[in-house]
């Protein structure tokens, strides 16, 4: 049997075909968002210290993810202001520790991975992204070179405070910075940060010689 389809139906089918193709070129943002939220829920599992709770973003993380690439000035100012308020300075008031300790912390990239021992102190992973001392050739370039950081700036109280604050919470100075918020996120202790301040500012530190 040979059925003849009425021309209206053919037209309707053709139109719906165009619509399916046309509408499907890009899924809607809400559909994508739902899909991503579902993936984050179902594709990860807690292992060791790396729990799934780590995937719940705070405001800064959510905003930086959303505005990756083009960060509007208003958002960026908002983040920096909010992050500025999180910085806690050591109660002792002493911001400069021991640069030798600082060098050890800067070299170490361990900490917070599910393969790391949870009770072992984390390192600062500084050399992963920055040049620091002249002696260490194996340094990364995601962050700027910090060689001679203190020599160029001195070690005044204001500089010490800035340096400590920057390591404690980099986003207080530069919203959505690639640098982890080491103090704010509890990766490094206040004392460890003072050792890194010394590594950067102490005139005897290899960074400044």
């Amino acid at each position: 049997m040979k059925a003849k389809m009425p021309s209206k139906t053919i037209l309707a089918l053709a139109l719906s075909g165009i619509c399916v193709a046309g509408c499907a070129t890009r899924p809607s943002d809400s559909e994508t968002e739902r899909t991503v939220a579902e993936m984050i829920k179902t594709s990860f599992r807690t292992r060791g210290q790396a729990t799934v709770a780590r995937l719940s973003q705070d405001d800064a993380q959510a905003l930086c993810s959303k505005h990756a690439g083009e960060l509007p000035k208003g958002v960026s100012d908002g983040i920096e202001k909010a992050q500025q308020a999180t910085i806690r300075y050591p109660s002792s008031g002493k911001l400069m520790g021991d640069w030798r300790e600082g060098e050890r912390i800067a070299q170490s990239g361990v900490g917070k991975q599910f393969t790391d021992a949870p009770n072992r102190p984390a390192g600062g992973s500084c050399y992963n992204c920055h040049q620091l001392s002249k002696q260490e050739l194996s340094f990364g370039t995601i962050g700027p070179s910090l060689y001679q950081f203190g020599k160029q700036r001195g070690a005044s109280e204001a500089i010490q405070k800035y340096t400590y604050g920057k390591i404690y919470n980099a986003e207080a100075f530069s919203a959505c910075s690639n640098m982890p918020r080491f103090g704010h996120n509890g990766v490094l202790t206040e004392e460890q940060i003072t050792h890194l301040v010394a590594l950067l500012l102490d005139p005897d530190s290899p960074v400044n010689r």
């Binding site: 899924p27 991503v36 973003q57 982890p180 996120n185 990766v187």
Partner: peptide, 19 residues
Amino acid sequence: RLAYQAGERLFYFRAGPYD
């Protein structure tokens, strides 16, 4: 297409103790 869009979002997704 949906997987591509989701993958792109995941690529920009920042979280965890190191941000």
